[in-house]
Design a protein around this nucleic acid. Structure first.
Lengths: 208, 208
DNA sequence: CCATAATCTGAACACTATTCAGATACCAAC
DNA sequence: GTTGGTATCTGAATAGTGTTCAGATTATGG
């Protein structure tokens, strides 16, 4: 091209022929586009356009569109784990009360993410990025937070030992499923808090 | 075209220039292609090819690819309800035992469908077909079956009244979520039976 | 300062959804 | 039984897609 490419800075955009950090710019633009248009309807050319680069430049950093999407998935799982950790850090303490608040907040954070970024949530769990091609450390990190929370609930006598055994599985599955059913318009948004009530009751021993 | 189109029968394929039941043939072929290649990667042209018709013929029955996919979603929800009803019909009886078996079988049928037809499951719950554009009678039918099953569990004293209140929500959400997490490779397949154990224990009152 | 390696471009290929004017075949009326 | 009308399907065209690759451009180390 014969145009003078002296438009942007080197760190976040374009200084010259080379881009600085094209890989990060691409994933950033891709995330934004998925957010707006959904994981299907992601166009490599639109991503390249947004960044101000030719479509073929993408293939220097990702062997295919699919691998770019896989990378997005990785980042999103990481981001989700960060949000969970932040949420937990704001509810310290060893009491039964704080453990219960943490438990609910873990679920709420999960759902809030799903509900506010439905398209990103769909990217994560809609078969677009394969788990075996992902750094499974993220999944484990989220799992560990839930495990610690459940341990606290058991230690403070909130939940029964019998239910503790199924804590991670039931909690994760229920929150994941409710999130999906709500963002797809099958259940109303208010159903989530009700689910948390039910979950807590179940883990405590189910009442009479 | 100048080729002699005397190849197939009128009911299922092609008799002549006209097709007989093109709409059904299209949705059938589309379902098969989604099954194999996933809800993204569905190509209208491939669907038309499979049926032996030109791409533009599709637009006589569906205003867009999206509306075809919406129709697929409708059919799949219907099919799922049928499978649930069939599964239930094989476990009659008013005993606590039969009610418990029905409860588990409802969950298993849901998961078996998700696990054996992951791509169709993704089509249903991955944001491809909108719930408000769907005949919501299907959702309600599945919901009613679960409700009746839970009523039986309550009547036979298997579950507590307190948990009965959350029965549909927790069960549906947990089964839906576990199905997703398993078919996406995040949880192992064996986790589902464990989830059913946990769910049943939770609904019974959670043990000690 | 120059050669080499890293980076990006342009054009091409095969594919996609969608539109529309026109061809084709069925059906009903005469 | 021919004819007109109508539902149905085709062909071609448009605009957009992922992907490849030869070549242009720039940064970097000797």
């Amino acid at each position: 091209m014969s145009l003078p490419n002296v438009l942007r800075t080197k760190s976040s955009g374009r200084d010259s022929y080379h881009h600085g950090d094209l890989r990060a710019a691409l994933t950033g633009a891709a995330t934004e586009l998925v957010r707006k248009n959904g994981p299907d309807h992601l166009s490599l050319r639109a991503v390249a356009d947004q960044v101000g680069v030719s479509p073929s430049a993408v293939y220097h950093y990702f062997p295919s569109k699919e691998s770019l999407i896989n990378d997005l998935g990785d980042q999103l799982f990481k981001k989700m784990a960060v949000m969970q950790r932040e949420a937990l850090s704001q509810i310290p303490g060893n009491s039964a009360r704080s453990a219960r608040l943490r438990y609910r907040e873990l679920g709420r954070t999960y759902f809030r993410w799903a509900n506010s970024e439905a398209n990103l949530f769909r990217l994560m769990f809609g078969g677009f990025c394969k788990a075996d091609q992902r750094d499974s450390h993220q999944d484990q990190e989220a799992f560990v937070m839930l495990t610690e929370c459940l341990d606290d609930l058991l230690a403070t006598g909130v939940i029964t030992p019998a239910m503790r055994r199924y804590g991670e599985l039931i909690s994760w599955a229920a929150v994941q499923g409710a999130s999906t059913l709500i963002i797809e318009g099958i259940l109303p948004e208010a159903a989530f808090e009700e689910l948390l009530d039910g979950l807590e009751l179940a883990m405590r021993g189910g009442g009479k």
